[in-house]
C-alpha cells in the first residue's frame, strides 16, 4: 500500500492500478477507470492510493476526491467480511423489499452503507440490479435470491449469516 506519493508502492495491487493508468496513457480522463481498479483490488478507495493516483494522473486532489464521492459504486471505507445487497429498485420496492430492508436494519443494527462494528457484515442498498422480474431481489455475497416472500427471504439471510464465516 502506498505510504505517500513520493514513495510509491510496488505491491501487485498497485501494479494493476498502474497498468490501468498506462492503458489510458496516464491521461486525466482515466480517473474513473482507475478508481474502478482501485476499488476492485483494494476493496475500497484507500486514501493513500487515491493520493498516488492523483499524483500520477496529474489531477488535483480535490477533483479526485470529488469524483470518488460522487459515484455510489466507490467506497472510502473497507467492506466487511460479508456483503448483503438489498435491491431497492421499483419492482423490488413494490414487492416488499422495503420491509426486508427494515428488518435487516433492525436485526443487525445497520443502515445501508454501513459495516457492523465487528466488521462481519456490510449492508448495501442497490438502486436496481436489473433483475426486476425476480423481485424482490437480494444478493448474499453476490449470490442472487429472488421471488421469495418476506419470511423466506429473512430466513435465507439468517441462515446465510449463520453459515457464512
Amino acid at each position: 500500500m502506498p505510504a505517500d506519493t513520493q514513495q510509491k508502492p510496488v505491491d501487485r495491487r498497485w501494479q494493476r492500478i498502474i497498468q490501468t493508468m498506462l492503458r489510458h496513457n496516464n491521461q486525466s480522463d482515466a480517473l474513473i477507470e482507475t478508481l474502478h481498479t482501485v476499488q476492485e483490488t483494494y476493496g475500497y478507495l484507500d486514501p493513500a492510493v487515491l493520493a498516488a493516483v492523483a499524483d500520477r494522473l496529474g489531477i488535483p486532489p480535490a477533483r479526485v476526491f470529488g469524483v470518488a464521492t460522487f459515484y455510489n459504486h466507490f467506497s472510502l471505507k473497507p467492506k466487511g467480511d460479508h456483503t448483503l445487497v438489498i435491491c431497492t429498485g421499483t419492482a423490488c420496492h413494490v414487492r416488499g423489499n422495503d420491509q426486508i430492508l427494515a428488518w435487516v436494519k433492525e436485526q443487525y443494527h445497520l443502515t445501508p452503507g454501513q459495516t457492523s462494528a465487528d466488521n462481519r457484515l456490510s449492508l448495501v442498498e442497490a438502486r436496481c440490479v436489473g433483475a426486476c422480474a425476480l423481485a424482490p431481489v437480494i444478493l448474499c455475497d453476490g449470490v442472487l435470491t429472488g421471488k421469495k416472500g418476506y419470511k423466506e427471504t429473512t430466513a435465507i439471510i439468517e441462515e446465510w449469516l449463520g453459515h457464512a464465516s
Binding site: T88, G89, T90, C92, H93, R127, C128, G130, C132, A133
Partner: peptide
C-alpha cells in the same frame, strides 16, 4: 447506463 429502477431491457 440503464439507471431506471425497474428497467432491465439494456442489460438483457
Amino acid at each position: 447506463d440503464e439507471g431506471d429502477p425497474g428497467a432491465f431491457m439494456d442489460r438483457s
